[in-house]
């Protein structure tokens, strides 16, 4: 973890790393997703980035890593090491308000906020991102990726993904 206050350069590089689009949900940036934990300049031209996975087995982490390396190389940092950190565990509460808005706009029902630890019962109403109805039903707990569930709207009959609370 970053222990001292970030320098101006570190803040700039953090913003740059955070601007990388998510490889699976390109409407979101890594900053929207809340997965870039910190950027530290260890020496001139040498930078350490802390990245946390959404799910432990998330296959996008490798693409994220190389994309971050690329933008920082392009900014003139020759040595970039991206480290994966697990603790504290990522939560869907780390997705920014802007990120939630973009998800809904993209047709994915955003995760609800956690009242406490543990998953939220999936039976609670989730709003259809297409027509706004809360009359939706679960089709499958796992959808196109581990982080999403598949639902269907009873009002407009469209199926949609829901970003599961984690």
């Amino acid at each position: 973890m970053v222990t001292t206050a970030p320098t101006a350069l570190e803040a700039e590089l953090l913003a740059l790393a955070g601007s990388v689009p998510d490889p699976e949900l390109p409407v979101l940036t890594l900053a929207d997703l809340g997965v870039v934990r910190g950027v530290r300049v260890l020496a001139p031209g040498r930078v350490d980035v802390e990245l946390t996975p959404t799910y432990t087995g998330c296959p996008a982490i490798e693409a994220m890593t190389s994309d971050i390396e690329q933008v920082l190389h392009d900014r003139g940092i020759p040595e970039v090491s991206v480290r994966t950190v697990l603790s504290p565990a990522w939560s869907t509460d780390d997705i920014s308000a802007e990120g939630r808005r973009k998800l809904a706009e993209f047709g994915i029902a955003p995760p609800r906020s956690h009242p406490a630890d543990g998953p939220i019962p999936l039976s609670l109403s989730i709003r259809c991102p297409h027509c706004g109805s809360t009359d939706t039903e679960l089709l499958s707990r796992f959808s196109s990726t581990a982080c999403k569930a598949l639902r269907r709207c009873a009002a407009c009959r469209e199926p949609f993904d829901h970003f599961k609370e984690l």
Binding site: Y55, T56, G57, S140, R141, F142, S143, L150
Partner: peptide, 20 residues
């Protein structure tokens, strides 16, 4: 199909845990 996807996703979670 939904179960195929579900079981594969559960497998992926477990594989991620195994790697760590």
């Amino acid at each position: 199909l939904e179960e195929e996807v579900a079981l594969a996703n559960i497998a992926l979670d477990l594989l991620g845990q195994a790697r760590v």
